[in-house]
Nucleic acid binder design. Sequence first.
DNA 1: CCTGAGTTTGATAACGGTAACACTCGCGAT
DNA 2: ATCGCGAGTGTTACCGTTATCAAACTCAGG
Lengths: 362, 362
Amino acid sequence: MPARKSSAEEPPPTRTTPGRPRGSVMRDVAKLAGVSHQTVSRVLNEHPNVRQETRLRVLEAMRSLNYRRNLAARTLVTRQSHTLGIIGFETTLFGPASMLYGIESAAREAGYLVSVATVRTLDRASVLDAVDRLTQHAVDGIIAIAPKQAVTNALMQVPPDVLCVTVGGGGDADAVPAVRIDNEGGARLATRHLLDLGHATVHHAAGPADWPEAHERVEGWRSTLYAAGAVVPPVEFGWWDAASGYERGQALAADPSVTAVFCANDRIALGVLRALHEAGRKVPEEVSVVGFDDMPDSGFFLPPLTTVSQHFGELGRRSLGLLLEQMETPAEQRLPSEIVVPPALEVRASSAPPRRNGKRRR
Amino acid sequence: MPARKSSAEEPPPTRTTPGRPRGSVMRDVAKLAGVSHQTVSRVLNEHPNVRQETRLRVLEAMRSLNYRRNLAARTLVTRQSHTLGIIGFETTLFGPASMLYGIESAAREAGYLVSVATVRTLDRASVLDAVDRLTQHAVDGIIAIAPKQAVTNALMQVPPDVLCVTVGGGGDADAVPAVRIDNEGGARLATRHLLDLGHATVHHAAGPADWPEAHERVEGWRSTLYAAGAVVPPVEFGWWDAASGYERGQALAADPSVTAVFCANDRIALGVLRALHEAGRKVPEEVSVVGFDDMPDSGFFLPPLTTVSQHFGELGRRSLGLLLEQMETPAEQRLPSEIVVPPALEVRASSAPPRRNGKRRR
DNA sequence: CCTGAGTTTGATAACGGTAACACTCGCGAT
DNA sequence: ATCGCGAGTGTTACCGTTATCAAACTCAGG
């Protein structure tokens, strides 16, 4: 007898094929507890109709076998992976990284794992590619850290059975639910603060011209100046980093009429501070500088930076909440919604009344 | 006729049960191409034994149905999810965030998706919990951004069929393969740079006492001083942020014998710079300051910071490479390995010869 | 025209869960 | 007593792949 493939009569445990040192499965638990695997499933899913005694027996069996359910199998049949997808851009920066963290920790509490797909450019193709990778892995929903309109546009093309939410960026909330910060309001806060200190007007070192967030901040700044009857200096667009701030800071420093600068973010402000310093213009005595974001160490710039604080982590958390809410909504009765998180002004040492008031603060 | 379950004669699309607006599956593709689903699978997996003509027919069918394979099903049978897990700590900071980004982009190229599990504290329980969440989701491997020994210890407890690699932190490479930066070498670079400039000795604002990375930097610093026959000032431990640097900077500023400070990272350096500035001690004329990390904007501090540059993204990429390499290794012939990435000194304006040399740079 | 090795293909059985339905009770209403 | 009903449980059928094995079809050599 060839010893191989003895068709029948063989003992049942053929179940565990030789080369499989894997953990236990539902069947094993069922056998040990003396019930059917379906009952094990019921215990696992907290189905009410299981006798208490049975439940305990099953739980005990699970414990002693150190049973872990196979999520792939579950996903296959329920079509729910309990995984959320995040599309990120520039995730090395503090803002996006914090949102990601906020999302992840909120997701964990809600019983989800997050998968990340980063895009190097914000064009439609990259975003769709990221969506594709995530949907292949059967994510239950997607949160896009979406600073540009192109992302929202791309998101509108994803199949409607994959829920999307955008966070932190300038998107069209009618198309895709969004969580965002009130950039315009934040810019107003900063500008008004400087005007209130007595500055005749405020200059602005903006972000990139094609970023909605940058534009919203420009708008808040412009409208505040306008409402106060102040002259509106030309806007200087640039990138979000200190190098770009430095460059524009040099121009601003050379203009003696400049007494207050509102920067589109803290990094730009850092560059402006350096440029002003090198030009010998004292901050805040001669020029006041205000930033945006409240990065971790901006309170230790020279001088400590007055800035608009946005709570990135909170944004992330809220976006997860919004997504879960959408997932629970009956699907045909899902309406566009937008959550706007208000920023706050953090006054530190880089802003003060202009010198001509004859009064120096600090 | 009961209208339900009309076995034959019914139009073929019986496949799509009423409440299922799902995409097409292998069976659909097979039907359209006039082959069995198994052949479709073979085409998908690039099995050699498929006639070219058949292959093309199948590919065409896949395209026209916009077929996407169901990874959950695939994972169920192959036990490979094509997903990698990342355990992260403090991922909002630039270093970890960059490593994460490096890992993700390398993973994408290798055909993997990454899932992130962050831990709020670095104790064994949190780490094991993170491992557990990841393994439940059947990740093929885990990369831990592991700044403390406790992580490595926890990793040693995970079932051997889940491969782990640590990156960026002080771990025991004999136990778990690791990718790390040469902290000691970096510290040596910084210290030697300052000694070479003519400073009699170098003070050190260290990281937290219980972080191996901080200790390695202390070691590099100490050994260099020792080898040069310089006095070794007492070490000041603290946290990694600017506030902590500021605090220690105040003490250093008050000590007139201090002419050079090596900071364990750029954020600490930022705080030290502020403290020195406020105490009226000029950098670099009176005191030189050197950081570690080369954060994005440290070139715009006041003054621009001389620092030890570590390429976080590269660390991430290398760690992924190491993990993949381990995964391809026959399992019983897997030996401990460690990759050490050398840092580089980035000389900027915050370091100069001491004043007593009578010579001022810049 | 038959044989045998190699290629191409299909049928069927896993993988580990959940869903749907059927069955067994015990018990109050008929 | 019979029926109906709900709680508790087991049976069976999937979910969409890949794996295994056998069948069918080459095409050469005898």
